[in-house]
Design a protein around this nucleic acid. Structure first.
Lengths: 139, 139
DNA sequence: GTTTATGCAAATTCTTTGCAATACT
DNA sequence: AGTATTGCAAAGAATTTGCATAAAC
């Protein structure tokens, strides 16, 4: 584990607590979108369910994580990549891939987001794409 | 109100009931994605909350409606357009637009779905796009 | 020392299930 | 008549809130 979680927290004027560090480390090591339930499974021995809810909300407010669309109903979250490179313009375009075999959802950064031509009068601010299928590991 | 709801139900071997007709009419007249809560607001005088849950589940099973991705957390649903034209291949690609002013989400059918080049090894089966911004009415 | 986060209990809200009564075909 | 749907009650999950204690700065 690097010092990344501590730095992320300090950069965002958040107090450095065990729970926040552990949640960030979970996101970093898993590299997939996690729901509250996913986190609870991993961290319930150490922290209260309520604390995890509040931690997620805090991170969301500070733009440390973003919501990942999912058609399962459960809200999932992933680390925002723009947190890693400072001064980068906040880029609210995401492509996520959900594997129907292993069930994992990950952000696909390599993809250049297609240009979507909207009907006239529509103004686009944020584009989220969820691709479902089979990932390279499960193929 | 046309006879559309009745026909849709019969086509799908579903019994024609007041609740189902009213739910379908709500989808047809609103032309936007609706959550369970949205329906409840409109129809709670007439039907039980539980009946609405079951109606949505039934329609989902029969592919009369589909889930619409939303980052608000609440699952939303919209009529499947392929129900209107029979024998059309089920097409599981959707582009939805959510207006951040009026809050409404609608399916944008006119759009040709962009081709998304996935990293090798990934197989795509379904693509959902959620564009957020400002719609033509709120601009 | 002051402010903020945590844990626990409890309140709300959301969703599902069982079963008798009702409506549909 | 026979089968599927509805409404009500109640169970079970998911999420939020209040407040005293503990931890961070």
């Amino acid at each position: 584990m690097s010092e990344k979680p501590t730095h992320l927290l300090k950069e965002n004027n958040l107090r450095v607590t065990d729970c926040r560090i552990d949640v960030l480390n979970t996101f970093i090591s898993r590299q997939v979108a996690l729901s509250h339930a996913d986190l609870e499974e991993v961290l319930k021995e150490n922290f209260d369910r309520v604390t995890l809810y509040r931690t997620l909300k805090t991170f969301l407010d500070k733009d440390l994580i973003h919501k990942v669309l999912d058609d399962s109903g459960a809200a999932k979250f992933a680390l925002c990549s723009h947190q890693h490179e400072e001064h980068e313009q906040h880029d609210h375009n995401h492509v996520h891939f959900k594997c129907e075999v292993c069930g994992l959802t990950n952000c696909i950064e390599e993809i250049s987001l297609p240009n979507i031509a909207l009907p006239k009068g529509y103004k686009s601010k944020e584009v989220n794409v969820l691709v479902q299928g089979i990932c390279n590991k499960c193929a």
